[in-house]
Nucleic acid binder design. Structure first.
Lengths: 393, 393
DNA sequence: CGCTATTACTTGACATGGTGAACGAAAAAG
DNA sequence: CTTTTTCGTTCACCATGTCAAGTAATAGCG
């Protein structure tokens, strides 16, 4: 080819074979790597890497960097460099009253983010809002894929919104609708799954093959990673941990459960529990934490109870699945400031005596993390090796 | 070694390539199948099946049966038949005081079983006992592989016994020791994992891609199947559910937990809970159930509480993992007779409102089911596609 | 300086497992 | 007897991966 590869001239990741995708994935996760190192990580022979890397090099998708200063004895390897910024993705977090979108590169680094309130949850209106924000945020960039995260029962790399309580939708082929309007390949994802994918791809869980992401905020969410894959379950109904009973006594949740996780941990539950004894209904979580900081016994107790609930849930997860790490996220994470001790105590108490204590990490992030996760899902979707299913003509 | 070229001359399953293994696995699970049906189940083209089946046919590993009476319109397919009985496996369940072994075919059908008490848990003594029982039970049959199940933290297709509380072992290369003494390829497995494999391969969970097996007896065990694979976790520590707290009040378990699962569900806990109020220490589970049948209020209450504990655990599993089915097993299962109602009630109460209610199946079986599971693991191990990891010379 | 050990990469022959397209075979339906 | 439908085969071809042998570049060392 004569002309130098223009910036948007690189082939789409979707056209690559499974072997090349594996290399791209490893380069995205591991920065520049030599062929030898790639071969080791992917469990392939050096010969395979020579063969797989060549077409990627000639197509301009990756390039060969200067050899590093050698620490080894032998011939230094030539690092293969993948410019992640040349592969842009858009992630959308869809709720019943807002569309939040980010544009991120293949490593999940966010470039732009934007949000818009929506008035109607009617399908065509929502699709129009998504299309508008995607076009705006996409700008001139070529977008490889679009991921949409929403609360509900989505399976892995889904395309249809099944019965969705929040939006009032049922069997809406949202991916197809958006794809037709934007021309960008689109995939749906449960929001907890998306957040978890983001955390594991390029967040605090990067490189961990097994972990759970537990979110607190309006509700309680859970995403589980096993063997490097985010669990989706056959029906997409996974991680419904919000109403696990923590104790026999305790507050009531909105479903009438006494002492369930939601009754201890949702932001509404915490602010109510702190506000009511003080005769105040307008307290928010920050104020509640401030009260605890001032030594207010009610706030202290409520947050300690919340921490205890967190600890119990973490212990259950680790007992059942043997997870080495649990990451806490969500906008209700503020509560941890005065809940961490009781969380750790409850974790220690409820962990099985032979289970290993997991690493518990608090991951403070903005709301865009949900949309970023959706972008990561879109990227993982493109890189997912086509699952070799013959379909008869 | 010289062998008469008779029926046992078929090639070992271990020599097959991944494609052929897939066909064999499908034939083991699905009885005789035509090439067309195999192609559909494996997601392959008809051409692939012709190619893959041929060497299996000429080697005699499978044969072509007579065409079935046709219900379809077109040409009837020729079913491919695999004689599972020609592939024998041995499964061993190892405890601190007993070695229990079965010989089963590749479909997990048990032919012979035998057990022996062991006096010493010294490694060489135990290995000798295993070798003796394997040789005896193996007879003249060619044994494809040997699986050993034991309580402890074994990873998937393990070969070393790590720190094992029951046997007092640490870092014992048991698989290698037995393999050297018997000449049979040997693999280790956690006992819950083995039981679960047996249940899903050819037990009541046959064909289910997602399920959990919950055992009650001396302890509480848990095995989880996700996407057709039994979960093992990175460290082999999975399913440590025995000390999950069920209620704040309740009996004490041997670790001092009040109201944990073990305190409600182990056979010892139940018999003690029934026996003590009656001033009897020698009650066994059957007698306890008999008392309940006679209307004894203590026994009724204890069994109802046990059922409630079961229901809570099942609900937790289903909430977290979205499992469509849970299978109950173990020698303590007798308790279900007067515990099922409370179990169902607790399950309904603790299940998340949006989660789907799982099928709960009681699977009554003998102790040989544990060893049978180990034999199934051995078979699955042989059929596991060599996981394509290049190892440098 | 040149030799050796070590590590990185390439080359080409080959194996495996997969596909599509064209075709032949056997049954039911009409 | 023809059509339809489904099953199975053949053959050319592709993608991925290995092995064995060789080339390339570096550090260490006499």
């Amino acid at each position: 080819m004569q002309r130098s590869p223009d910036i948007d001239d690189a082939p789409s990741l979707a056209t690559l074979g499974p072997a090349a995708r594996g290399v791209v994935r490893a380069l995205l996760l591991g920065g520049p790597l030599t062929r030898a190192e790639l071969a080791r990580r992917l469990g392939l022979s050096p010969a395979s890497l020579t063969k797989t890397a060549r077409p990627l090099l000639v197509s301009g998708l990756i390039s060969e960097g200067a050899a590093l200063v050698s620490e080894q004895r032998g011939r230094p390897g030539a690092p293969l460099v993948l410019d992640a910024a040349r592969h842009q993705f858009i992630g959308v977090k869809l709720t019943a009253d807002e569309v939040f979108a980010v544009r991120a590169d293949a490593r999940g680094r966010v470039d732009v983010s934007q949000s818009v309130q929506i008035e109607s949850t009617e399908v065509t209106a929502v699709v129009a809002e998504i299309v508008a924000i995607v076009n705006e945020i996409g700008g001139d960039h070529r977008i490889q894929a679009l991921g949409i995260g929403l609360a509900g029962e989505q399976t892995r790399f889904d395309d249809t919104v099944r019965r969705n309580h929040y939006l009032g939708w049922d069997q809406v082929p949202l991916a197809q609708l958006v794809e037709e309007a934007t021309g960008i390949p689109t995939v749906l994802s449960g929001d907890a799954r998306a957040l978890t994918a983001g955390v594991q791809w390029s967040g605090p869980g990067k490189g961990m093959s097994e972990l759970a992401v537990l979110t607190v905020g309006v509700g309680i969410g859970l995403g589980i990673v096993l063997e490097d894959k985010v669990l989706s379950g056959p029906s997409g109904l996974v991680g419904m941990i919000g109403h696990h009973r923590i104790s026999d006594s305790g507050p009531l949740c909105e479903l009438g459960h006494r002492g369930c996780a939601s009754s201890y941990l949702t932001t509404a539950a915490i602010t109510a529990a702190i506000g009511v004894p003080h005769g105040r209904v307008d307290i928010d979580l920050a104020q509640g934490c401030a009260l605890a900081a001032d030594g207010d016994p009610v706030a202290r107790r409520v947050l300690a109870d919340a921490g205890r609930a967190l600890g119990v849930i973490i212990a259950q997860l680790v007992n059942i699945l043997g997870l080495p790490a649990v990451i806490l996220a969500g906008d209700g994470l503020e509560l941890l400031s005065y809940a961490e001790d009781s969380m750790q105590a409850a974790l220690a108490e409820h962990l099985d005596p032979v289970a290993r204590r997991p690493k518990v990490v608090a991951f403070t992030s903005g709301f865009d993390e949900w949309a970023r996760g959706a972008a990561v899902v879109a990227c993982q979707w493109l890189l997912d090796p086509p699952r070799h299913r013959y379909t008869r003509p």
